[in-house]
Every structure is written in C-alpha cells, then in structure tokens.
Design a protein around this nucleic acid. Structure first.
Length: 504
RNA sequence: GGCCCGUUCGUCUACCGGUUAGGACACCAGAUUUUCAUUCUGGUAAUAGGGGUUCGAUUCCCCUACGGGCUACCA
C-alpha cells in the first residue's frame, strides 16, 4: 500500500545549470526511476528581480541533453500544475493567513530602511524571538493598529514565529538524524510584501499540493530545514512531509569552497552543462556539451561525484545507474571537481561508442571547420580509425581533417634537413609501384613500401616519417598505412607528388 | 560571532571492529607503436590530532584542529 514515489527538482531560472544542479537532478531522477516513481520538474520563479529570461528553456534543454526527461514539468504539464511558482501565486496566501490565524506567524511592518538600520546598529542582527518584541509587527502593535495598517494597505510581510527552545529533529536520507534548536533560527519571511511567497513557504505548499514524497536538494539548504519542518507540522502534518536528502556540495578543485561559474573561467574548464549566455550581460559561460562531452560521460562522471556502487566499476550508463542507484551509498562529504578525471570519463565513453552513434556530432564539428562530409560510410571508417585518440569530441576535426582533404600546411622543417636525392628517387619509385598495385589496403601497402625501400637500399624508418608528413602534414595521426589505405590510391599519390616538390 | 554539516593517497573513492588499507584520475618509470596519441606493465603516495570503548580500531563515542555551508522581503 506504499504510495507512489514522487520526486521533484525545483530550480530557480536565474542562470545556467551548474554541476551541482545537474547532479541534484540526476540523483532525483535515479531515485525516482529506481523505484518506478515519477520525476517532477517545478520552476521556482517567485523572485521577479532575479528571473532571467530564457533560463527556464535552458534548464529544459540541459535535461533533455542529459536524457533526464521529467514526467511532469511546465512544458509537459501534469495533474498537479501549474509547474511554475509564479503561476501558483494565488494559492500561497491562504496558507500564510492560516498560519497567522493559528498563531504560528505574524505580520511585520518594518521597512527595509528600518531593518537596515537595525543590522548596522546591532551586529549579527536577526529578526528572531529575542528581537521581534522591539520591532513593528502584529505581536507588538495593538490589534486596532494592526488592522488599521492592513486596511491602509501598508506594505508588510508575514513572518514565521519561531517557537522558543524547541528541538526540531528530522531524519535525512543521507545524514541520518539532524537536530536544530528553534531558538537559533530567525523568523523567516514567508510571504513577501509583493504577495509572492519566499522559497520557504512555497516549497512546503507546493510539495504538499504536488504530493511529493522525496525531496533532494543541496547541503546549503540544511540550515533552513527546521523552518520547513515547522511549516509542515503547522500546515499539513509531519506524517505527510516528504523525506529529505541533502546532497553534499561540489567544491572547487583548488582551494576550497563551493564550485562557482567563475572557477571555470579561472581554471579553464566548463561548469555548466551547456553554453549559457546571460541575456543581461551577454557573458558566455562554456558548457560541457559544447566542449565536446558526450551526455553519457557527463552523467556518468557526475553520478560518481558522490556515489559509487561499492564495486570497482566506474563506467555506468544511465540505465545501469538507475538499476544500481542506492541512497545509502551517497556520500556525506563534498567532492572537489577534477577536470582531468572528467575528460578520462569522456575518453572512455568515446572509445565505447560505435562510429554510427558518433557520426552526426562529428559531422557537425567537421562542418564547423569547413569540411563537408557526404560519404557516410567513409565518415564511419574515419571515426573508427581515430576515436581512440580523442578525449573530447572536439578533438575529431584536428585528428581527422587530413582524411578528408590534403593538409593545408606541412611540417617541412622536420623533413627537409634530412631530405636527399636518394629519398626523392625512392618516392618516385614508390609512386610507380603504388600505381601498379592490385590491392589497396594497409597490409599490402606496408609490404610494398618496405620492399621498395629494400630495393633502394634505404631503411624504412628513414622514409616513414617523410611519408607521414606528406599525407598528414605533421608528425601525428594514426598508422601511416591505415591513412593511405583510407584516403585511397589517387589521393595518396597526389599528396606524395605535391610534397616532393616542397621538400626539394 | 552563532548554528549546522563534514574529514582515508594531490584528486574521486573502497573497507560498514581483525586487510600487506584496495581501485581510478594525475604523476613517475619501462614496454609496444619506426610519429603523436592510445594501449600494456610496474612504481611513488592516505586513515587530521588527542583521548576513550574494545582482546583489537580507518571503522563506535568524546574533545580539539581543519574545511565547508547557512546566518536576505535570493533560491
């Protein structure tokens, strides 16, 4: 008779989706799928001032890229909509009013200036059970005066009235029992002067109305958990409260602290899932996708940053993660992000992918470099030949451009000093023999090449490097004869002829 | 400052009272590849400190240190 599991991810559309955010979604998703539950996406956009146009769509795009499609979302809808907090505005006030009626909350009329003055006058000022008696609120003002202020539509907020010296305990799925004392917490604003709820009220009300059973969020939310617990207790009953899981943070690779988007620029790696251009500043923050990461690898590496299955396996597909995910193996401590290891995951995934599934993305990247690919079959052969050498997808153009067109530049310096007439004659002979060859494959080519070398009393090693530079343009790339075999007899001979002139 | 959370190689981590403390990334060395990369083999490298509990603590408890988070009419 256990009720269906419903897990929600509730981002605020204020910018790009960073690593920590994606990992939170991922664990939400894995947990929901593991138990056959629903994964819900709710947008928390109650703060108009921080709302960034386009951010919601961006979040959806990132989830789609990662393969983490929600069952219910603003775009898709669902039985518990709307899925945007700004569209649920009307439902929050009644709960705030209910709290006031029951004596768990109160009106506060203090202006921003008055609060600011307090903060300056009193160090570490908190609006709490010890200071609220000196403030302008419905606890200190006469009933008539409060009514008058409300009637005059004086700007006001509704604050929770934290009880004195009450231990608030709850069981976190990751951390076990966590206890706070209510006296330590301040009287958080629940309903803002503009009528919008704060996160604290909204998250509780929405989770209740959407029948959420499990809630995952970052560890930075742990200190505000007691407020949420109290709201659940006052409003809906603790028995209906979702189970909480506070995920450890993803830290900067150097030094300490939470990983931020600045760190990416500073240390040269992406921190967002996909490129994000802030419409207000036009500032671009690079994404894993655009830097050549496979979504499979991205999901894999994020999953392992704070979880493992207890074996030594490190490469997991999303399906595998779903079946093997378990809450009790999620770590408590934060993890520093290591870009080198991230690239290793991607390399592993590229090696594992077959050429066919890499095709469209590689074609796109080649296109960006001005290389049009028409022959699908040829492209697959190219990918098969070079994929083991690519750590990110964007390595492909560099590793394979010479397989589509003659090199634009030649590393002449590494050949010319040792170039002589004997070598020139050798290549002239090689061209003649190549033209006569019956078969054109790597093995035959190598055999033929070595025979010509022997006949000309030249060491194969002395002409192998020149041949490579002739075909590739530089000292890199896969085995030379594989390259010659792939680009074909005509192109091979043509490139040799062209290069001979250059080396002379 | 207060409150909360955390602490195993440089990094990600395994061990859930008894192990020569294992793996991966990175690094170093060797082999393969007549290029570069890949690949393979090997190596360096860790339980923050102090008290308990216990026959025995990386593991359980306490204290200290260190790190992190929160302390908005932001989420």
């Amino acid at each position: 008779m256990s009720k269906k599991i419903r897990v929600r991810f509730a981002p605020s559309p204020t910018g790009g989706l960073h690593l920590g955010g994606v990992r939170t979604v991922l664990y939400n998703y894995l947990f929901a799928r593991h138990y056959g539950g629903d994964f819900i996406l709710r947008i928390e956009d109650t703060d108009q001032s921080r709302f960034v146009p386009g951010a919601e769509k961006y979040i959806m795009d990132c989830l789609a890229w990662c393969g983490l499609e929600p069952d219910e979302s603003p775009a898709k809808g669902g039985a518990y909509g709307p899925y945007r907090q700004s569209e649920r505005k009307s439902s929050y006030k009644q709960y705030a009013d209910q709290l006031i009626k029951d004596g768990y909350a109160y009106y506060a009329f203090d202006t921003a200036q008055e609060l600011e003055a307090k903060r300056i006058a009193i160090p570490n000022f908190q609006y709490s059970l010890i200071t609220r008696s000196a403030m302008k609120n419905s606890l200190t003002l006469a009933t008539g005066e409060v009514e008058q202020l409300l009637h005059a539509q004086t700007p006001h907020v509704i604050r929770i009235k934290m009880p004195a010296n009450e231990d608030i305990t709850f069981t976190d799925m990751i951390r076990g029992e966590v206890t706070f004392n209510s006296s330590q917490a301040d009287d958080k604003v629940l309903l803002k002067a503009d009528g919008m709820p704060t996160y604290h009220l909204a998250v509780v009300v929405d989770d209740f109305l959407m029948k959420i059973t499990h809630a995952f969020r970052g560890e930075e939310w742990l200190p505000s958990a007691p407020v949420h617990i109290l709201l659940w207790k006052y409003l809906f009953g603790l028995d209906k409260m979702p189970q909480w899981a506070h995920l450890p943070l993803i830290l900067k690779p150097d030094g300490n602290g939470k990983l931020s988007k600045r760190d990416g620029d500073r240390l040269g790696f992406p921190v967002f899932a996909m490129n994000w251009i802030d419409p207000r500043t036009n500032e671009l923050t690079k994404g894993f996708k655009e830097l050549g990461f496979l979504p499979e690898a991205f999901v894999n590496l994020l999953a392992m940053l704070g979880w493992n299955d207890g074996t030594e396996q490190e490469i997991f597909s999303l399906e595998e993660l779903v079946t093997k995910f378990s809450m009790d193996r999620v770590h408590k401590g934060g993890a520093k992000f290591d870009y080198e290891k991230a690239k290793w995951y991607n390399h592993e995934w590229i090696k594992r992918m077959d050429a066919g599934s890499l095709k469209s993305e590689v074609r796109r990247l080649l296109q960006q470099q001005g290389i049009e690919v028409n022959d699908d079959h040829y492209l697959e052969k190219v990918i098969t030949l070079v994929k083991d050498r690519c750590h990110v997808l964007s390595d492909f153009p560099q590793q394979s451009s010479f397989l589509f067109a003659a090199p634009a530049q030649y590393d002449v310096d590494s050949v010319k000093p040792k170039w002589n007439e004997q070598k020139q004659l050798f290549f002239a002979e090689a061209i003649r023999q190549f033209e006569l060859m019956q078969q054109w494959d790597a093995a035959d080519l190598e055999k033929e090449f070595k025979e010509i070398a022997a006949a000309n009393q030249i060491k194969p090693g002395d002409v192998l490097m020149p041949l490579r530079v002739m075909l590739v343009g530089g000292k890199f790339g896969p085995a030379v004869f594989d390259i010659a075999a792939l680009i074909g007899r005509e192109a091979t001979i043509e490139r040799i002829k062209k290069a001979i002139k250059m080396f002379a």
